[in-house]
Design a protein around this nucleic acid. Structure first.
Lengths: 121, 121
DNA sequence: CAGTAACATTCCAATATTCGAATGCTGTAA
DNA sequence: TTACAGCATTCGAATATTGGAATGTTACTG
């Protein structure tokens, strides 16, 4: 599998996770497993929509559930992933501006046009 | 600022980052600052498109650049963010299936319908 | 000055995502 | 069986994202 494909998949994962309701959902499930109507009440989202989001997360193997009589008890299937995700989302990463000189030094002797690579090469 | 807004912003960030070209771009810039045509050659993406993606990343304060005569030398403005992002993207998080009993225990005494919250409440 | 390399931006059509509405299914209670 | 709670799924319209094509700007070179 080439790099491009790796990036594709990683990007798809990130897009999956990049939805406010999905994040809130994962946050709630991180605290404890819950069924759909629990979530429906906690976040203010319609039942069908909660189901839709859970379905997406389940297909992505991020959550799973067990049937508990009438209801389905959803839980986080990959806790470490969600933990790291939440850290990333929660943390405030500072900007580290570089001076032109610093950028120049870090660039090494790259920079320059050589062969006009015909896209397919 | 309420939780909802926090999730909104975090989600927007994740969606920003959830694009294969943008990830590849950040990966390349992680190694060393580069100008647009360098990137255009490394990844096989048209110049205008590279510029478009860089523009998005710049507005999100994830990269910045310095003008170097003719060209613009882009660099990562928030290295820690990109580092953590790459780890998240690269790492393989294992599934941790739970048994029904485990889920039940973890659920505490949640589960149950009480007030049919009229969406707007 | 003209020519060109490096880069940005605007416009737009194709594609993808999102969510409400409607409907279906399965347990459970009466 | 009927009724209802809990949940999923399908459809469709609104919205957002994407990337090519065209074009503009700003060095630099001669």
């Amino acid at each position: 599998m080439n790099e491009t494909q790796q990036w594709r998949e990683a990007a798809a994962q990130l897009r999956l996770l990049g939805h406010p309701v999905r994040l809130a959902l994962l946050d709630e499930l991180s605290k404890a497993p819950k069924c759909v109507t629990d979530i429906q009440d906690l976040l203010e989202v319609r039942q069908a929509n909660v189901s839709q989001h859970l379905s997406v997360l389940r297909q992505a193997k991020i959550v799973d559930y067990h049937e508990e009589g009438n209801q389905r008890c959803y839980y986080i299937l990959r806790p470490e992933l969600v933990r790291d995700l939440m850290r990333l989302a929660g943390r405030d990463y500072p900007a580290r501006p570089k001076t032109p000189a610093q950028v120049r030094r870090a660039a090494g002797s790259r920079q320059s046009r050589s062969k006009p690579q015909p896209t397919t090469a």
